[in-house]
Every structure is written in C-alpha cells, then in structure tokens.
Simulated scan of single mutants.
Amino acid sequence: MPLRKVALACVNCGSRNYTVSENKNRTERLEVKKFCKHCGKHTLHKETR
C-alpha cells in the first residue's frame, strides 16, 4: 500500500507549503510552526485532509 501524503496549510494565508506522510495512529491533526514563504515569517501550519 503506497504512503499517502497530506498537506500542511498556513493558518494565516491558507497556502499549502509542505507535505507530510499520513499517519493512521495520529488521532488529532498535526500542527507545527513552519516558515511560510508567502507570509515571510514562521506561522502555524495545520494538517489538511
């Protein structure tokens, strides 16, 4: 079974800048601070499905 990818979207501008492998054991959506090239600063990114 191939690994599925999910996107991480910036909470400020909504841009989907990063992708991560889907984890079936994770019950809550992943939230990480990442650099957003559109906002020009580190912002919170949330997992989209």
Results as ranks from 00 to 15, higher is better:
His45Cys: 06
His45Asn: 04
Cys10Tyr: 08
Tyr18Asn: 07
Leu3Ser: 10
Thr27Ile: 09
Glu22Tyr: 15
Cys36Tyr: 01
Glu31Met: 08
Lys46Glu: 12
Phe35Asp: 09
Lys34Gly: 02
Arg26Tyr: 11
Cys13Tyr: 12
Thr43Tyr: 08
Asn23Gln: 05
Pro2Leu: 02
Cys10Asp: 13
Lys24Met: 07
Leu30Cys: 01
Pro2Gln: 08
Lys5Asp: 09
Asn23His: 03
Lys24Asp: 14
Val20His: 00
Glu31Phe: 13
Val20Tyr: 00
Tyr18Trp: 07
Lys5Arg: 01
Lys37Leu: 09
Val6Ala: 08
Leu3Met: 03
Glu47Ser: 14
Asn23Pro: 04
Tyr18Gln: 06
Asn12Met: 08
Val20Gln: 00
Gly40Asn: 09
Cys39Met: 13
Gly14Glu: 12
Met1Ile: 03
Lys37His: 06
Val32Arg: 14
Leu30Asp: 02
Ser21Lys: 05
Ser21Asn: 11
Asn12Val: 14
Arg29Asn: 06
Thr48Tyr: 08
Arg16Asn: 12
Cys10Phe: 13
Pro2Trp: 03
Arg49His: 03
Ala7Asn: 05
Glu31Pro: 02
His42Asp: 14
Ser21Leu: 10
Arg16Ala: 11
Asn12Lys: 02
Arg26Cys: 14
Lys41Met: 09
Thr27Arg: 08
Arg49Asp: 11
Val6Asn: 09
Leu44Thr: 12
Val11Asn: 14
Glu28Met: 14
Arg26Trp: 10
Cys39Ile: 10
Thr43Arg: 02
Asn23Asp: 10
Lys37Asn: 06
Val32Ala: 04
Arg29Lys: 10
Ser15His: 06
Glu22Ser: 10
Cys36Ile: 01
Tyr18Leu: 06
Leu3Phe: 05
Leu8Lys: 04
Pro2Asn: 05
Asn17Tyr: 03
Lys33Asp: 15
Val32Pro: 01
Cys39Lys: 03
Met1Cys: 00
Thr43Cys: 15
Lys5Gly: 03
Ala7Val: 04
Arg4Pro: 13
Arg49Leu: 01
Lys34Val: 05
Asn23Phe: 00
Lys34His: 09
Arg49Ala: 08
Arg4Gly: 11
Cys36Gly: 04
Cys36Gln: 01
Val32Gln: 13
Ser15Gly: 10
Arg49Phe: 11
His45Ala: 04
Glu47His: 14
Phe35His: 12
Val32Cys: 05
Thr43Gln: 09
Lys33Thr: 06
Ser15Leu: 06
Arg4Lys: 14
Lys5Thr: 00
Leu8Arg: 03
Cys39Asn: 14
Val6Trp: 04
Cys39Pro: 10
Glu47Gln: 15
Leu44Tyr: 04
His42Val: 15
Gly40Glu: 05
Glu28Gln: 14
Thr27His: 09
Glu47Arg: 12
Ala7His: 04
Lys37Met: 02
Glu28Lys: 12
Thr27Ala: 10
Cys13His: 04
Thr19Ser: 07
Lys24Trp: 02
His38Ile: 14
Leu44Asn: 07
Leu30Ile: 03
Val6Gln: 07
Phe35Arg: 09
Glu31Val: 13
Val6Met: 05
Thr43Trp: 06
Val11Thr: 15
Cys13Arg: 07
Thr48Met: 14
Tyr18Asp: 03
Arg4Tyr: 13
Lys41Pro: 13
Thr43Phe: 02
Arg16Pro: 12
Asn25Ile: 05
Ala7Gly: 02
Val11Leu: 15
Lys41Asp: 15
Asn25Tyr: 02
Phe35Ser: 09
Glu22Leu: 15
Phe35Met: 12
